[in-house]
Design a protein around this nucleic acid. Structure first.
Lengths: 216, 216
DNA sequence: CATATACGGTACTCACCAGTTTCGGATATT
DNA sequence: AATATCCGAAACTGGTGAGTACCGTATATG
């Protein structure tokens, strides 16, 4: 009897776009919800994740989530797309004067930790990648490209200062670290630690670019 | 966890535990079922795959599958473990006299095609990798290691004939091709074609090993 | 203050799927 | 031939989770 759900009445004459009335949606909570989604995603993967888990983690109601995102897939895609904290501050990047110095300077506990988190998220989203082609672009822009572009910039600077040849295949080389770190974490289940990263720099990248060990 | 093939079971009637009677299980169909499972796995991923799909694909009854594998996870693990057809015939590997020649000789349409199939299977199993630690070893033995060991052997031969230095980090370099191919297929969604593989060989591996282009 | 909406929470519907059971028919052993 | 087991097919069970509806309450708008 008490039907309060009748939105087809009292439509204002000003049918411009959306004459909002009543309480407004609290968008300040969106980042908390998206962060909760990323946490659950990294822990359980897309298929293991439930909307209730995310809602509970964010201390929000399930209906609140569906008021803002139309589906689980929508929420996850938005969460991945909005993980902006990870974009490297281009101003604060190291500039040590040598390519190896720059790359070694990027090896910090914080970077490693954040990298592993991103890889966990990528693993959680992997099963979805095949179904939603647009998601691949989102993952690429949010996770892959930021890190690759840093390596690319380091190498371009090295070319500019004459440290390495301009013939180097920078596009391919810039992806080696990401590729091997992903493979090592997701497939081999081994840690991506400082030793491993150094073995890539000194065992692959530097030799491939014709840079000899400086010790001698 | 099943024997791969047991067509000729010459078990004496006086077996210790089970004196079998009646019709015997037709194990010649096991490979067909496992292949069907791999197909569905590659197409839909582990979570999207249903037992009914596999049964229908193999033209078998669902009960038949459960008579042979105790669970969906069991079936998938066995399917991955038994994809033995892919193990390279060590006798038939190329031996061209140069490392680059050997590696380029491995680039064949058939190899590329089979590699992409394996990667699709790996992607489908990815979400399961976090839950079942034993699966990582199975995937490693069935997909990763066979290809890496081929590259390792090529490089060891190159060391033996003095083509490359014995100081090269063969362990790391042997995984570059697999890592980058996996990354390119699963994350970047770009094809692993001949051109890409050549760019790895000539833009990364050869320079890293100090081998100069032979043309000049 | 009155109203319309958002909020957290809970209960509900509906579909899907792992795993089990059942059935009629086929097949190998005795 | 009799029997025990397998087979494919299909019905059934039980649990789970996406998405919806509703409740009492909170809060911004007018």
């Amino acid at each position: 009897m008490t039907q309060i759900d009748a939105p087809d009445i009292t439509v204002p004459a000003t049918t411009d776009t959306a004459p909002k009335l009543g309480r407004k949606r609290d968008h300040t909570r969106d980042p908390e919800i998206l962060d909760a989604a990323l946490e659950v995603l990294a822990e359980t993967g897309y298929d293991g994740m439930t909307i209730d888990m995310v809602a509970a983690r964010a201390k929000a109601g399930k209906a609140t989530l569906y008021r803002r995102w139309s589906s689980k897939a929508d929420l996850v895609i938005d969460a991945v797309a909005c993980m902006k904290q990870s974009h490297f501050d281009l101003e604060a990047l190291p500039d040590t004067g040598t390519l190896r110095g720059d790359m070694v300077a990027m090896i910090k506990p914080h970077s490693i930790e954040e990298g592993e988190r991103k890889l966990q998220i990528m693993a959680g989203v992997m099963s979805m990648l095949s179904r939603d082609p647009g998601l691949a672009d989102v993952v690429n822009a949010a996770i892959v490209e930021p890190r690759a572009s840093v390596n690319r910039m380091f190498m371009q600077r090295a070319v500019a200062r004459g440290e390495i040849s301009a013939d180097a295949d920078i596009e391919t080389l810039a992806m080696i670290t990401s590729s091997m770190a992903a493979y090592r974490t997701l497939v081999l289940k081994k840690p991506v630690d400082k030793e491993f990263l150094l073995s890539i720099i000194d065992g692959v990248l530097m030799p491939a670019l014709g840079i000899r060990p400086t010790a001698g």
